[in-house]
Computed example of a mutant assay.
Amino acid sequence: MKVLLVEDDPDKARRLEDWVVSTYSSCEVSTARSFTPALDFLIDSTPPFDLMLLDMSMPNYEGASYKYDGTAPETYAGRDLLAQMRLRGIRVPTIVVTMFDTFGEGAGRVSLEGLAKELKQDYPESFRELVYYSPAQDSWKISLRKIVDRIVK
Rank of each mutant, 00 (worst) to 15 (best):
A77Y: 15
F100R: 08
E105Y: 14
D40N: 10
K153G: 12
E74W: 00
L54D: 06
D40Q: 14
L51I: 06
G114Q: 11
L42P: 15
D55Q: 15
P37E: 04
K146A: 02
K153Q: 14
E62A: 07
E125K: 10
A72L: 07
V92R: 01
D50Q: 09
I147E: 00
L82C: 07
R150E: 10
Q137T: 13
K146T: 03
A38V: 02
A38R: 05
S22L: 01
S111P: 00
P47A: 06
S25H: 10
G70E: 02
L16E: 04
S111C: 01
M99G: 06
V29T: 15
R15C: 14
G108T: 03
Y133L: 00
F49V: 09
V20L: 14
K67G: 13
Y68I: 11
E28K: 13
P93G: 03
A116T: 03
A107H: 08
D9W: 04
L54T: 06
G106H: 05
P10V: 03
M56T: 04
P73M: 08
D18S: 13
L87H: 05
Y61R: 13
M99H: 01
L54R: 08
A77E: 01
K120C: 04
T36W: 12
A136L: 10
L82N: 03
V21I: 15
E7C: 06
L53Q: 01
K12R: 11
R14Q: 10
D101S: 15
Y132Q: 15
A107Y: 12
A32R: 04
Y61D: 12
R79I: 03
V131A: 04
K146L: 01
L39V: 12
R15D: 12
K153W: 11
F49M: 07
P47I: 05
S143G: 05
K146F: 05
S45V: 12
S139N: 09
S25E: 13
E113K: 12
A116Q: 05
Y123P: 08
V96I: 08
V110Y: 00
